[in-house]
Design a protein around this nucleic acid. Structure first.
Length: 590
RNA sequence: GGCCCAGUAGUUCAGUUGGUUUAGAACGCCAGCCUGUCACGUUGGAGGUCGAGGGUUCGAAUCCCUUCUGGGUCGCCA
């Protein structure tokens, strides 16, 4: 056959309706089954797989078919035939038909691939990463990339439809303090000076609001030179959004619609809006986490007041010391967990860092508990009532002199129990907004306040006076969107007054000179008429990972890096020539 | 930076406890046979720096030290 033949169909699209048609297919050889007198070839392209039959009466094609191997790229011309009933292959979508080969061209040969091009392979990830271009041929990986493209399209369609302007911001920008470690790029024309790759387009998008764009978005690559994890890459993608003349509710409402649109366009699932909302304080008090997993209940109950009436020194001391006692009712837990398993729970709590775990089992014969003897009967009854305890339940308690410790420890126990008891349904999607985050947290190492979100986050109006008197209790107009216990994105209303911005820098311990030298351009811009504005940024890789149910972010990134931030395919990072270093005025010391 | 797990054929693994064989298996690969396979079948064959370096020993895949690589995790990630 002539190589100039045009492809007429995709392999995976052939069906009974094509029977009798003359087609040209092009693709990769999935497998060749050479029976001696007849050869079957499965040909694969982006769309799927189709069987080609090569008979010896087409001698030229048959000879070539004897030569082909896995992953050769071939073109075949032939007629689509219905398979005899007994030869139908129900495992592939094109299994009712096959193509009777009339001509075959080998377009390109292939070495034997290091691993088979198919789903469900058991191959070390480093091998897949080295041959990423082959890994991406596997249907699952291809599907992930396709899915991601659909998400991107949904984002662009929705935001464009809602008046957002896509703007690209610089990749070569200046290093700013706070936040993650920067990736630096030396400047050839400015000896001794460095650009930083952006950790996010934060300042630029705010400046675009000053510019009057009003609604901006970008699918932006961001860089952070920190250690990697299954859900963290040194370069990653944010969906970055910013809007003018809005408040928290406007942003939340728009983003609910956006998320609904993305999920419903890219998957078969339905999303109900509005989402639930919890303040940071509620989330911590009830779930012990600022990203609560709401796929199950098992809420934490405050019992400090009752516990302090007991004789149990651990509890009373904790409360006296300003701490708290939190309980969880594991419904039917007394029936589910054996005595030994309860001991394992106690061990687990210690693993998380708790000093201990108190428990009360409500058996039909009465209360069983190592701490029961410290409780008067009516105090115990009050406790059981507060915990809504019924026969068969198991109550667990954690106390700590540090309130936040008790909360987060109990939060970890709650998650652990949810996992152990199989309550984390994989197909459930529980979105929740967490709002009113603290503006600041105290950095013990640096002995100063640092911004919890970033230094441009607006305090809540009613808390502004506290900035000077009680900074740690100031709440911010900041919010996170959480899905099944994972943070999808977060944002805030920004400070648009240079006066408050300067106050903020002061609380953060910036001298006026330092604020000016680092953020002078922003402060200056704010002196020229700044609209109230705010926005949000999503971790797009993570979102795609979650929607696809993947365990690693790497599986939805075409060319990801390893835990050592290396690319096994290209070998980056690598040493460079001395000449390059000289041009950059750089001397390497190792 | 800390802790944990893993590096043996192209791939996935066994062998390491307790020192000694020609270092095995499966899949893949190569060759022959095979006209309805789709995990094709069948016969035969090739394929190893046991991650690297050093040490102990008569003798090391196996024990010791160092190091590299991959993964997980804590710190870190405004």
């Amino acid at each position: 056959m002539n190589e100039k033949n045009k492809r007429t169909h995709y392999c995976g699209q052939l069906s009974e309706s094509n029977v009798g048609e003359e087609v040209v297919l092009m693709g990769w050889v999935q497998t060749r089954r050479d029976l001696g007198g007849i050869i079957f070839v499965d040909i694969r392209d982006r769309s799927g797989i189709c069987q080609v039959v090569i008979n010896p009466d087409r001698l030229e094609a048959f000879k070539k078919a004897e030569e082909i191997r896995s992953e050769y790229v071939i073109a075949i011309k032939g007629r689509v035939c219905l398979r005899p009933e007994e030869n139908v292959n129900p495992k592939i979508s094109t299994g009712f038909v096959e193509v009777l080969c009339e001509g075959l061209d080998i377009l390109s040969r292939s070495k034997t691939p290091p691993f088979p091009i198919e789903d469900n392979i058991n191959v070390d990830e480093s091998v897949r990463l080295k041959y990423r271009y082959l890994d991406l041929r596997r249907p699952k990986m291809l599907n992930n990339i396709l899915f991601r493209s659909r998400v991107n399209k949904a984002i662009r369609d929705f935001l464009s439809e809602n008046g957002f302007i896509e703007v690209e911001t610089p990749m070569l920008t200046r290093s700013t303090p706070e936040g993650a470690r920067d990736y630096l790029v030396p400047s050839r024309v400015n000896p001794g000076c460095f650009y930083a790759l952006p950790q996010s387009p934060q300042l630029f998008k705010q400046l675009l609001m000053v510019s009057g764009l009003e609604r901006y978005y970008q699918i932006a690559r961001c860089f952070r030179d920190e250690d990697l994890r299954a859900d963290r890459q040194p370069e990653f993608t944010q969906l970055d959004i910013e809007m003018s003349f809005v408040d928290v509710d406007d942003i939340i409402e728009l983003n609910e619609k956006l998320i609904k649109y993305i999920v419903e366009q890219a998957t078969q699932r339905k999303v109900d809006i509005p989402f639930r909302r919890l303040t940071y304080k509620e989330a911590m008090d009830r779930f012990g986490s600022d990203k609560p997993d709401l796929r199950f209940g098992m809420e934490m109950v405050e019992v400090s007041d009752i516990a302090s009436k007991s004789e149990f020194k651990v509890f009373t001391d904790a409360v006296k010391g300003g701490g708290i006692v939190k309980g969880i009712n594991i419904e039917k837990g007394g029936e589910i967990f054996s005595r030994r398993q309860i001991d394992e729970l106690v061990e687990k709590a210690k693993e998380f860092g708790a000093k201990g775990l108190a428990w009360i089992s409500i058996s039909p014969e009465g209360v069983k508990s190592p701490i029961a003897k410290f409780f008067a009967e009516d105090t115990m009854n009050e406790l059981l009532q507060r915990m809504n305890a019924k026969t068969g339940d198991l109550l667990i308690f954690i106390s700590d002199k540090e309130k936040s410790n008790a909360l987060s420890l109990m939060g970890q126990m709650r998650l652990y129990l949810g996992k152990t008891l199989g309550l984390l349904k994989k197909d459930a999607m529980e979105f929740v907004w967490v709002t009113e985050f603290p503006l600041l947290e105290y950095d013990e190492e640096e002995k100063r306040f640092v911004a919890m979100h970033h230094p441009f986050t607006s305090p809540m109006d009613e808390d502004i006076p506290l900035l000077e008197t009680d900074p740690i209790s100031v709440r911010a107009k900041a919010y996170d969107i959480v899905l099944n216990g994972t943070e999808l994105g977060g944002g805030s209303i920004r400070i648009h007054s240079s006066m408050i911005q300067q106050k903020m820098f002061k609380v953060l311990g910036f001298t006026e000179e330092r604020a000016k030298s680092n953020f002078g351009f922003l402060l200056q811009a704010f002196e020229y008429g700044t609209p109230p504005h705010g926005g949000i940024a999503y971790g797009l890789d993570r979102m795609v990972m979650l929607l696809l149910g993947l365990d690693s972010i790497r599986d939805c990134i075409a060319f990801p890096k390893t835990q050592n931030a290396m690319c096994l395919m290209t070998g980056a990072p690598a040493e460079v020539e001395d000449r390059q270093l000289r041009e950059l005025h750089i001397q390497v010391k190792i």
